[in-house]
Amino acid sequence: MIRGRAWLFGDDVDTDVIIPGKYLRTKDLRLLADHVMEGLDSEFASKVGRGDLIVAGRNFGCGSSREQAPLALREAGISCIVARSFARIFFRNAINVGLAVVEADVDCKEGDIVEVDLSRGLVNVGERSFQGTKIPAFLLDILQHGGLVAHRRLEAAASHGDEDGMGRSP
């Protein structure tokens, strides 16, 4: 169960506002985190706390394939992104770097405490529950291992892992 304070964003939050192109030459994740969401809120990096969540509208993470976008959010302390929908590449990248994502249409206020049950795709805000989309079991595995790199290592270590690495067919 993931539990944290919510920051609200609207529709079409793109990767250029999550982390602008001018910061991409660095491999320093802390520097990325210091500029996260700068395009929408220049104070965000200083306000966000470890374990906080983002609750957003449609098409979160649209645009570039830059994995620095979910990395910057993860490094800034964001524990989970709840959005009405995600752009495809961002969704994959987030899971691959171990940042939890769940598709759900959640109605809440900024600062509300939000609880996410990833395995059930369920989001709770106080007494209210919002049923989101459950992610396939093999993606949940990748998330729970902390991302694709750790997942692949575990796979390689398991001598009789399933051949296609996707677990059972979702």
């Binding site: 990248n93 991302g147 694709l148 296609d164």
Partner: peptide
């Protein structure tokens, strides 16, 4: 199609992707 760096890392290693 476009993919992120970690997906690409996995492709470089295995030549396969879900």
């Amino acid at each position: 199609t476009g993919i992120g760096s970690t997906d690409m890392a996995s492709v470089l290693a295995t030549g396969r992707l879900w």
